[in-house]
């Protein structure tokens, strides 16, 4: 019997006004992979992640996560890290932990507390009083403390210093369950090169390439970074 794919995207198209952000985009992702979503600015990466998360409705096509369309049920399986800080500034770190624990059944509170303590984040201060980098770390720690089936990470390492970047990538590698998939959108390809199992190249809202990172590297004799530069040369 064929195993059900974790994520199945079929012919989605999304317009912003008359501008097509995604055009007839189809993709199937299995469970247990770390997949890099790579493309230049405005290629449709964030739109794709938002549609999978259920925050945007496509004009055409469909998305299914373990057989469920984006909605209440899928939101219980998907952990989404947006490209901005979404935890309200009035919340303290402690309240943000309680918020995740209250609403997400798969949230591991001790794990989150340990991660945040490792990162030296104060628990009693409102997030508005923390630095931007610290707030990003809080958000990532909370998202990665969920035992979700699918993690959607939009530019998780773009705004942080190299030391924190290393910690975040290690967190992504170690925190996700073996049967879960991480879809990570980034420009910093060299940083995620060693972490990813598969990669997706996306250009002007169309799927350019979806391949295994190891196989592509062996076949082409180039790094992912080099392949990206070649594919998207200006």
């Amino acid at each position: 019997m064929q195993e059900q794919p974790l994520l199945s995207i079929s012919g989605i198209t999304k317009f912003y006004g008359s501008f097509p952000s995604l055009s007839d985009f189809s993709l199937t992702l299995p469970a247990g992979k770390i997949v890099a979503l790579l493309g230049p600015n405005g290629s449709g990466k964030t739109t794709l992640l938002k549609i999978i998360a259920g925050l945007l409705s496509p004009n055409a096509g469909s998305v299914s996560i373990l057989g469920c369309p984006p909605g209440e049920e899928s939101r219980g399986m998907v952990a989404y890290l947006p490209d901005r800080i979404s935890i309200p500034r009035w919340m303290t770190t402690e309240q943000a932990i309680s918020y995740f624990a209250d609403f997400f059944a798969d949230f591991d509170r001790p794990k989150a507390e340990a991660m945040l303590a490792d990162l030296g984040i104060p628990f009693d201060k409102p997030l508005g009083k923390l630095s931007k980098g610290m707030r990003e770390k809080v958000q990532l720690s909370l998202v990665m403390s969920r035992a979700a089936k699918l993690y959607l990470l939009d530019e998780p390492i773009s705004g942080v210093d190299p030391a924190a970047r290393e910690y975040i990538l290690r967190t992504i590698l170690t925190c996700h369950a073996p049967d879960s998939t991480v879809l990570i959108s980034t420009h910093l390809i060299a940083d995620v090169e060693e972490v990813v199992d598969e990669f997706i190249f996306i250009r002007e809202g169309r799927l350019l390439c979806y391949d295994s990172a190891d196989e592509a590297r062996q076949r082409e004799g180039k790094t992912l970074d080099e392949m990206f530069r070649e594919a998207f040369r200006c």
């Binding site: 998360a53 259920g54 925050l55 209440e72 049920e73 939101r75 219980g76 998907v78 989404y80 947006p82 901005r84 800080i85 979404s86 935890i87 309200p88 609403f103 997400f104 059944a105």
Partner: peptide, 18 residues
């Protein structure tokens, strides 16, 4: 507005709630 349509909406609207 800020709970649903500002940056906080990315968290609020991802809650597994109707």
């Amino acid at each position: 507005y800020s709970g649903l349509y500002s940056d906080s909406g990315y968290l609020t609207l991802m809650l597994p709630v109707k």
